[in-house]
Amino acid sequence: MGNLLILNGSPRAPRSNSRRYAQIFSSCYGENTEYFDISKRNHPELCAKLAGTSHVLFVFPLYADGLPVTLLNFLKSLEAAPPQNKPAVSVLINCGFLEPQQNEMAVEMMRLFCRQNHYPFGSVLKIGSGEAILDSPFRFLAVRKIRRFADSIAKGSYGTFQTTMPLPKGLFVKAAASYWINYGKKFGVTKEAMQTMQIEP
């Protein structure tokens, strides 16, 4: 186990769920971690950080079934300026939908990046209902899985983990509706207004 670098690939990194997952990870991981948000301007700095670490954890959301552009662009920068010693890469991804398996394509993209660029691959944690789980009674499930995920990285016994809210899909649909209705209320926007069928009305 050595030092671990956490890079947040969410476009809203400072206010992201990914950041909260990263914080829980840091508190579970035995050794020091260093955390950075990926931004448009800090690619060279982060590429240099990567050169001095033995393990890098990418935390990010699923965007349109794939990697968010923020992360994709960073990976391209890293490909162009690779470190001499390649750290192992682990992935903590969260998505809005209930099924953690919906993250699978993005995880495969990370694996492909690692294969193409010769980075050892570490552990994976896929979180479903990632927008809501931390503020739900099921937060403990996420924390528990993050702890197991962190242990697997610390011990070098890599594995794939997943978690989500243990709700029937119909109930999740209802819970999501009230989550978004409350979200809209903050802006004075009603459920009916949010349900508009018009695009660019």
Partner: peptide, 30 residues
Amino acid sequence: YGGYDTVMKTMLERAIPVQQAFIRIVNGET
């Protein structure tokens, strides 16, 4: 990396206004 490259992906991410926040079940998935 097995997905759309930046130019197309940027546009596809910006296309989420065509969806509502609300969720439904399609082919057994949300």
